[in-house]
């Protein structure tokens, strides 16, 4: 009877697919020895700084940084961590492409990473819209035509500051966070992809 419980099924599945020594391993295959591997964790670190500074900014509201030097500095931290985040993520993405990191049934790992990239662009874009300065006025006016042209603008209203602010601080980070967690868990579950042609020497290992 116990085995029929959803809770026990979930626990058993988790233990089977992602035991703690897979989730937090203290060793890695010998081939994990390149600077390219650093960019995944750097991307996560930058995301951490973005979230932390974003939370501080959200406590004071979108107009705070216009009038407070502390607010402006916090906005600068948010701004530069976003720039670093994208640099790290793009290098990570290119690295994984040239490693063909989807090999070995890692399709979902690649796809969640690519979706996270697209979701990051959407999240950053809404951030630019809610700066409440001239730049956001300009981006809002220009961007509305694109979204309107394919009908999306009827509901995704870039000129509506309230809607964009809520999407930027709640919905989109939630989506990005969930996808990122899925991506990291998949990396841990599947392990780091072996080098291309490793199978040739693999038989003697």
């Amino acid at each position: 009877m116990m085995s029929e419980m959803w809770t026990s099924k979930l626990r058993k599945s988790w233990q089977k697919n992602l035991p703690i020594d897979k989730l937090l391993p203290d060793d890695q295959p010998a081939y994990v020895a390149s600077w390219i591997y650093v960019f995944g964790v750097l991307t996560l670190a930058a995301l951490g700084v973005i979230i932390a500074t974003g939370i501080v900014l959200s406590f004071e509201g979108p107009a705070w940084y216009h009038t407070s030097s502390a607010g402006h500095f916090m906005n600068s931290l948010h701004f530069w961590s976003v720039q670093l985040f994208f640099v790290f993520m793009v290098v990570h993405l290119w690295g994984k492409y040239w490693m063909a990191a989807w090999r070995g049934r890692r399709l979902m790992t690649w796809m969640t990473g690519a979706v996270a990239f697209v979701a990051s662009i959407a999240t950053a874009f809404t951030g630019y819209l809610v700066q409440t300065n001239f730049d956001s006025q300009w981006i809002t006016f220009e961007a509305k035509d694109g979204f309107n042209s394919v009908g999306v603008g009827a509901w995704f209203t870039v000129t509506n500051l309230g809607q964009m602010l809520l999407l930027h601080v709640a919905f989109l980070p939630l989506i990005l966070g969930v996808i990122t967690v899925m991506h990291v868990l998949l990396v841990r579950k599947k392990g780091v992809v072996p080098p291309i042609d490793a199978a040739i020497s693999g038989v003697k290992l």
Binding site: P29, V32, V41, G104
Partner: peptide
Amino acid sequence: FDANPWQGRTRKYDIV
């Protein structure tokens, strides 16, 4: 081969 757990040499790696 790529899908299976790595059976070759490993190295210490402190991800935390």
